[in-house]
Every structure is written in structure tokens, then in C-alpha cells.
């Protein structure tokens, strides 16, 4: 468990002054991640909002060593940094312990970077890969990704006269990562700082490849008021649309079970991207989403008992 008082006294390693939007969840992810570290870290960042907004030359928001090379390769780039560390440590040229963290958005992780991530995890590099998941290509202007939920309006799967946003359900990337037999894989939400920071700490203390998929509301792409980011992040969990759980060496543990599962429409209501779904003629779509959320939640409850 993270201790808020202690955290408040730690040096901020992700500083203010970056150019992320007001209310952006990506900055919260970066800041809380670095607050969770106790060992020196090197960060690799895929191209995306977090990267472009935090390192506009000659400025940088990062007070830790940071590297960005391209979009689809945060896993591979971080692999290289970690391999260099292993080699130089083995040769006695480096003495200190260093940890490695890669950040990729959902586009850079679910889609274009999936191969690179899979390779890095399979090779068992000791790194924590964090997918800051805002469910679309936000940096290029809200295009649909493999993480975009069914029914959401995006600029490449828009709601129109004959289509009602994305037609497909998103892929279950966390399950794909679990299938890599990682010692630690988790889902988190920025609605719950303590759960998230605890997970980052657990992952960094794990000797092996680790993965956290953190839902990160995007006020611009999701269409809500900047001050509602945390509330939206909580609603994703309370509706069971985004369960927060961890899988440690194959063993599932759900970190938060809502006392009363809220209907998915509670999550939709706050967001412009789902506005069209609330029309009576789209009830069938909402029902299909609710059914899928229920099915996955039940499945997760079963997995926890295994």
C-alpha cells in the first residue's frame, strides 16, 4: 500500500509545465508512476500525446533519463536499454540497480506496437510496460484503435446516419499479456491512485517483465469536463467496464469489486463520445455492450477462483 504522506514528500520526477491538456490523465499516469519509484529508473516512451507534450525541445518534463525513438517500438527500445544495462552491469561497468519503464498509448500498444511489446515480454526483459490507455489515437485527433470500445464515436469510426460509432468490441490486451505468462500483469484506473501506485511498486519489484494497462480518461477525446477525469476513471471501474485486477504468476485477484454494479449508461452519460448511444433507437447497441461487460465480469470472477 502506498502512503500518501510519504508520497507527498517525494521529489516530483515528472514536472509541471508540460503541454498536456488540462485534465489529461496521461500526465497523472506519468507523475504517479514516477512517484512510485524508489530505485533509479530509465523511461522509454512511444510516440504519442505523453511524448510530444512532455518533451518539446529544449524543454523536458522528465527528471529521469528518458528516450523516445518511434511509435511502434517502446518495447524494443526499452529492451535495448535494459540489455545494455545487463551487459554493462555484468562487465562491472555499472554498479547501481536501475529499473526500466516503457510508456505507450493504446495505439502504440494494442495496435502498432503489439509485436514489439510481445517480443519484449517473451524475452523476459526486466521492464515495466505501462499502457496509458485512452481508448483511441488521441495524439492524431481521436481515431479508433483496437482499444476503442464498441459504440464510441471516433473520427475514423464516427457516429453517422447509418453507423453508430465503432462496431467492434475492443481486444483484451491484458489477457494477451497474461498469456505471455508474466509474473505480474494488471489493469488499473487513474480513478484509484493508491491501487495504481501499489501496482507500479509491485511491478518494479518483480524480477521479470511486467505490464500494467491503466485506463486514462481523455477529456478531449471522450468529451467531458476537465475536472471530471478522476470521476470518469472511477465510473469505468464501478460499471465493471474496466475492472481493476492483477494477475501474479497466473493467479487472478480483483482489486475492487463494486458493491453495486452500475449500468454502463452511467459511464456513457458523462461523455460526448457515447452521446448517440443514449438515443432510444440505439438501445440494442447499449444492451449488447452491457451484456458483454456482464459476461466479462462474470468470467473474471470465475478466473479469480481458479
Amino acid at each position: 500500500m502506498a502512503n500518501l504522506k510519504q508520497l507527498s514528500q517525494k521529489e516530483e520526477l515528472f514536472t509541471g509545465g508540460h503541454r498536456l491538456c488540462a485534465g489529461c490523465g496521461a500526465g497523472i499516469v506519468a507523475r504517479q508512476t514516477l512517484l512510485a519509484t524508489d530505485t533509479p529508473v530509465v523511461v522509454a516512451n512511444a510516440t504519442g500525446c505523453l511524448e510530444v507534450a512532455s518533451t518539446i525541445f529544449p524543454y523536458t518534463a522528465w527528471k529521469v533519463p528518458w528516450i523516445h525513438s518511434a511509435f511502434e517500438n517502446a518495447g524494443a527500445t526499452c529492451s535495448g536499454v535494459e540489455a545494455a544495462y545487463k551487459s554493462l552491469k555484468r562487465q562491472g561497468k555499472i554498479k547501481d540497480e536501475i529499473r526500466f519503464i516503457a510508456f505507450g498509448g493504446d495505439g502504440g500498444t494494442y495496435d502498432i506496437g503489439l509485436q514489439s511489446l510481445s517480443g519484449a515480454m517473451e524475452r523476459r526483459h526486466r521492464m515495466l510496460y505501462i499502457c496509458y490507455n485512452n481508448e483511441a489515437y488521441m495524439n492524431t485527433g481521436i481515431q479508433r484503435s483496437g482499444a476503442t470500445p464498441r459504440g464510441a464515436h471516433t473520427t475514423t469510426a464516427p457516429a453517422g446516419k447509418v453507423k453508430q460509432g465503432k462496431e467492434q468490441f475492443r481486444k483484451d490486451l491484458t489477457a494477451i499479456m497474461v498469456a505471455h505468462n508474466l509474473p505480474f500483469a494488471a489493469q488499473a484506473s487513474i480513478g484509484y491512485w493508491n491501487d495504481y501506485i501499489t501496482k507500479v511498486q509491485k511491478a518494479l519489484n518483480t524480477d521479470g517483465p511486467t505490464f500494467i494497462n491503466v485506463i486514462q480518461p481523455c477529456r478531449l477525446g471522450w468529451g467531458y469536463k476537465p475536472e471530471d477525469t478522476i470521476q470518469v476513471g472511477k465510473l469505468a471501474v464501478e460499471t465493471c467496464i474496466w475492472p481493476v485486477y492483477e494477475v501474479v504468476n497466473g493467479k487472478y485477484k480483483i482489486n475492487m469489486k463494486p458493491k453495486e454494479k452500475k449500468p454502463v449508461t452511467e459511464f456513457f452519460k458523462l461523455q460526448a463520445r457515447f452521446k448517440h448511444l443514449l438515443k432510444p433507437e440505439n438501445k440494442e447497441i447499449v444492451d449488447s455492450i452491457q451484456a458483454e461487460v456482464d459476461r466479462k465480469w462474470e468470467n473474471l470472477l470465475k478466473l479469480e477462483t481458479l
Binding site: 530509465v42 522509454a44 528516450i67 525513438s69 518511434a70 511502434e72 517500438n73 518495447g75 524494443a76 527500445t77 526499452c78 529492451s79 535495448g80 536499454v81 535494459e82 540489455a83 545494455a84 544495462y85 545487463k86 551487459s87 554493462l88 555484468r90 509485436q115 514489439s116 510481445s118 517480443g119 517473451e122 524475452r123
Partner: peptide, 24 residues
């Protein structure tokens, strides 16, 4: 040497970039 048997040439060069930037 730390030999990284990557899953593609794109990742090979990406890992080389990470490694070289790291100082190896």
C-alpha cells in the same frame, strides 16, 4: 555481449538504438 534475439528487424534496430543511447 548481451545478445537480444528480437522478433523483427524493426525491433533489432530499435533495440540497438536503446542500447547505444544507454551507452553500450
Amino acid at each position: 555481449t548481451e545478445f537480444v534475439a528480437v522478433e523483427s528487424e524493426h525491433s533489432a534496430m530499435s533495440a540497438c538504438i536503446g542500447s547505444s543511447a544507454a551507452g553500450a
